[in-house]
Design a binder for these strands. Structure first.
Lengths: 206, 206
DNA sequence: CTCAAATGTAGGCGTTGTCTACATGTTGCG
DNA sequence: CGCAACATGTAGACAACGCCTACATTTGAG
């Protein structure tokens, strides 16, 4: 189908090739899986030569790392901004973080799928890993505070932390997995997210 | 014990190439990721020619499907046999299924990683999908029974089911993810699994 | 024993990632 | 303005890969 710019003469330079590569890459991963993502395929889709992507991503792994970076940035931002909107009660804060993270994951499935993909996060660079660990530490600290105020006091702290973080992660993964019928979740997304997180960090009486 | 079972001279036939391919493939996926899995690489590792794997798996996807099949079979078996060891109380049954599944996942991480891998389960054939859906139905039915006897009665049934299944899945995914320090979980695995599942389906007083 | 089926080998074709040399726009600076 | 450095895209090469076909060797049923 040769999607090249049919109208006028195609300019020598694409203009925004790096951003276009990232956008198209997220689409391809979401639609056909990570294995279907090829630099040459992206180049074809965007109407440039097969070597052009090399100017922006020296290797395929560099492209994946950039995708993961973008996704992780958004996920952190969603989690932290949700936290910033509530007060100091650790239960309420933890609940808000869970809702913010899960809602972002459900509303940005292509990007979520990218950065949870085991073969993408493997290529994450240092700055990304550091940022994710910062978020993990914040969550772990908040989990500790909830436990100190009576949440499952008899459970090993690391296990409680694992359980708490596993729920948004697992839910998003399952809903995102091929084979899950999205029709099962044709309810209001905010209500669904609230009900789900309430199971993990109940804040009904607060 | 065939004529040239083992000796200095390499026999013309490998003898158990199909099983060896699957075993080595699970190792490679676990150690280097799915992208590092190549048919030619497996052939080299096993000392056969690059075309030999083609006799057993016509395409690379066929190999992945066989891997997923093996993993799903084991996961189902672990879940169902755990369920068979307890009585009829749906809470106890659901708890046992969760423990059986999670324990299997934690003790068979390479295989678990294979069949939860988004680009592997994509290649699952019909029989595998059918078997997995059978297990899902059984879990969903048990979740419904627990809810009918007082477990989170005000939550949307599909959401409760999602939450319940997400926990073992998410925990195993997180522990399995690159970057998680396994040292955090240097406790008895049965005790850890029991504490985790108890958070989801408490059976303390039963 | 005979011979067909099963299994492994060898080579070829097209695609991919990535390197290098070259071409073409863009920009900073006198 | 002119022009040199730079950024970006093109084109060709190479090795590795999946997968196909032709051929070689072993196994096993009759």
């Amino acid at each position: 189908m040769t999607t090249a710019a049919r109208s006028d003469a195609k300019p020598y330079h694409h203009g925004a090739l790096r951003a276009s590569l990232l956008a198209r890459a997220a689409e391809v991963v979401a639609e056909q899986g990570l294995e279907a993502l090829t630099l040459r395929g992206l180049a074809r889709d965007l109407g440039v030569s097969h070597g052009a992507p090399n100017r922006h991503f020296r290797t395929r792994e560099d492209l994946l790392a950039a995708l993961a970076e973008e996704a992780a940035t958004q996920a952190c931002e969603a989690t932290l901004s949700a936290m910033a909107e509530v007060g100091d009660d650790p239960w309420v804060r933890l609940n808000a973080m869970g809702r913010g993270y899960l809602k972002w994951a459900l509303e940005n499935r292509p990007l979520f799928r990218v950065f949870t993909h085991p073969d993408v996060s493997r290529f994450a660079d240092e700055s990304l890993v550091a940022r994710m660990q910062e978020l993990d530490s914040l969550v772990a600290e908040t989990v500790r505070e909830t436990q100190a105020t009576g949440r499952h006091p008899h459970v090993h702290p690391e296990l409680l932390n694992l359980y708490t973080t596993a729920v948004p992660w697992g839910i998003a993964m399952i809903v995102d997995h091929p084979g899950y019928e999205a029709s099962r979740l044709n309810m209001d997304i905010d209500e669904a997210v609230a009900q789900l997180i309430e199971l993990v960090v109940p804040i009904a009486g607060r």
